[in-house]
Computed example of a mutant assay.
Amino acid sequence: MTAAANPFNTVPGAEEIRVLIADDHVTVREGLAAIIGRQPDMQVIAEAANGREALEMWQANLPDIVLLDLRMPIMDGVAALNAIRGLDSAARVIVLTTFDTDNDIALAIKGGAKGYLLKDAQRSELLDCIRRVHAGETCIPPALLAKLITSLGTAALSGRELDVLTRVAHGDSNKEIALRLYVSEATVKSHLRSIFGKLKVISRTEAISVATQRGLIRS
């Protein structure tokens, strides 16, 4: 009689993958905990409702995998990711979020995330990602990887250019921006020319639209 196939690709007697879930929505945490808890090769060892708790729970439990939301109170996901990776460069973190802008993806990957999934991913995708990252692989869906490549191929806006673009998004005129940032109108115009060139746009409205889509500014 042949042995039954192992659908989870686990080794009999192997230790379970210990997972920390960090998300500020309790229903999301409970749903993830239920899905993960039903897997014979995984267990949820801790939950966190914000970035600071995620860091504290990571230090206290040293999980194999962290499922980390990006937008959380007190300390956001990117800050928590950087803090965790600062303590252990081998920490395996998967970002699980609703945000798919290329800037968000780039910040997470540059911060050391080994996986990036959207919350509408299929359950099988999530579980496969956890197992792959635990095995030392990187897990980024092709569509999100394409956005990341687009981001890396675009010249980054400077801090001052982001300041100017944010004021543009608030509807400020060049004169108002100059007054707020303590620079000349000529300097503002120079920054706008650079912004338009980097974003490959020709108008303020288009610049705001592209920057919002890429997560450079918040709508």
Rank of each mutant, 00 (worst) to 15 (best):
A121H: 09
A135R: 11
G171L: 08
L118P: 10
R131G: 02
L162M: 05
A90Q: 10
T98N: 07
L126R: 10
R85K: 14
L165T: 06
K189P: 11
F99P: 03
A106S: 09
A90R: 12
E161W: 03
D163I: 00
S151Q: 13
L107G: 05
N103W: 12
P142H: 01
L118Q: 03
R180P: 07
A121C: 13
G115T: 07
A155M: 13
I177H: 06
L152Q: 12
L107W: 12
D163P: 04
K147N: 07
V168A: 08
D120I: 07
V164G: 08
Q122G: 11
L96G: 13
V133D: 01
R160S: 10
I149T: 12
V78Q: 12
R123S: 14
G115A: 00
R180A: 11
V168H: 13
R132N: 05
L87V: 14
T98L: 07
K147E: 13
A146P: 00
S184Q: 04
K147S: 05
A186K: 11
A79V: 06
L127A: 01
L117G: 05
I105F: 01
R123L: 12
G159C: 03
R85V: 10
A106W: 02
A108R: 02
V188Q: 01
L96W: 06
I149M: 10
A83C: 09
L157C: 02
E161Y: 13
L96H: 15
I149L: 10
R92I: 00
G159F: 03
L181N: 03
T166E: 15
I84A: 00
R85F: 04
L181F: 05
Q122K: 11
F99E: 11
L162D: 01
L162P: 06
V188S: 05
I109E: 01
A155Q: 06
G112K: 00
L144R: 03
L117I: 06
D88L: 02
V168L: 14
K114G: 04
L118K: 06
T150W: 10
K114R: 15
A113F: 04
A90K: 03
I94K: 09
I109K: 03
A106V: 00
N103V: 10
A108D: 02
T150H: 09
L162A: 11
K147H: 14
A146D: 06
H134C: 08
L152A: 09
D88T: 05
L162Y: 00
L126W: 00
S184L: 03
L152Y: 05
H134Q: 14
N82A: 11
T138P: 02
V78D: 08
L162V: 05
L87M: 12
